[in-house]
Simulated scan of single mutants.
Amino acid sequence: MGHLVRARRDHYLPGDTAEAVIRAVRVGGRLTCLSLLSMLSVFVLRHRALHVHLPRNASRMRSPHDRRRALSSRTRRGVRLHWLPLINPPGKSACVSILDALAHSVLCQAPRAALATLDSALHQGLVRMDEVADMFHALPAKYRVLFALLDPRSESGPETIMRLMLRGLGCEVKVQVAFEGIGRVDLLVDGWLVIECDSRGFHTGWESQERDRRRDILLAARGYTTLRPTAKMIIDEPELVLAAVKRALATRPR
């Protein structure tokens, strides 16, 4: 039998429990929001704090690093507490449900980042669209406008963010468009501009670059123009990417 970890008084967890889960239980709650979603390989734009859900009657909260120290303004640094009533009863789990984690992530992120997280969870089949619709009814009404912007066909967080940036420009954007003899492209803008959101995991190595360049040449032969911003550019330099897109759109030959 494996050893146990004493997270706090009367709370023991298996020795192989993830450290973030142990720290959340030590505080006095359950792991949630970006902390839990990142563990499940759901896209989150920024993740630094420990996100913990607490019941309304929570008491005797402790430092996530030391169960002997009370949670104070000093020991609370790096901890984000969530008090929203849960959608799904967690039972004895040390984590909230993924639907509750997604609900909390909407409150914790800017709209584009929240939509990228939701698209990621939907695309991976971790939740259904009808469940997400119900989730939005549990959130303040001002967030419900986001539901219409979801698209589970988006295969990555940066792709969702890029799609929303393009919509902000008033462009017509189609997602995951298939071209005979070439394959699918991430985004097709105004019927002629192809945007591929490249990530390190799928576009490294000479063979991958050769394949990508061949696709671009084949698309060019059919009258399409391709832009390939990296995921890092989309996230860290959105103004640069948008400037390139605007210039391309403005200079399209008639």
Rank of each mutant, 00 (worst) to 15 (best):
D100P: 06
V177C: 00
R200H: 07
L50D: 02
D119Y: 00
R67A: 08
A103S: 02
P229K: 01
L31I: 10
G168C: 09
V25W: 07
D130R: 10
G2I: 13
L240K: 14
R214C: 09
Y143V: 05
H203L: 14
R23W: 07
M162V: 03
K232S: 15
H3E: 15
L107D: 14
S105R: 02
M162D: 06
C171H: 07
R128W: 08
G2K: 15
L84T: 12
K142L: 08
V145H: 12
A110Y: 05
H47R: 10
D134W: 14
H65G: 14
E196S: 00
R74H: 06
H123N: 13
T17H: 12
S72K: 01
P55N: 07
R112T: 02
R67N: 11
V5P: 11
S120I: 07
A178F: 15
V27L: 04
M1W: 08
G125V: 06
S63T: 07
L166A: 10
F43D: 08
L193H: 04
R8V: 01
D119M: 02
M165Q: 12
G205E: 06
A103I: 01
R211D: 05
R74T: 00
L102P: 05
A20Y: 02
V5H: 06
V96P: 01
I98W: 05
T117P: 05
P89D: 08
I182P: 02
R252Y: 07
L13R: 06
L240C: 14
P152C: 07
R112I: 06
V185N: 13
G223N: 03
A138I: 06
P89N: 04
R252A: 11
E19Y: 09
W192P: 10
A248R: 03
P111D: 08
M165G: 11
S35H: 00
A250T: 08
V96R: 00
W206H: 15
I87H: 09
H123R: 10
T226P: 10
T117Q: 10
A20D: 08
K142Y: 11
A138Y: 12
L227A: 03
I87Q: 02
A20R: 00
A113F: 01
D216P: 14
L84G: 14
F202S: 04
G170Q: 05
E180W: 11
M39T: 10
S59K: 15
R247W: 00
L149C: 11
T75H: 09
N88G: 13
R60P: 11
S154H: 01
L150N: 08
G183A: 07
V44N: 09
R144D: 05
N88M: 11
A113V: 00
H203M: 13
F43H: 10
N57V: 08
P152E: 02
R214M: 12
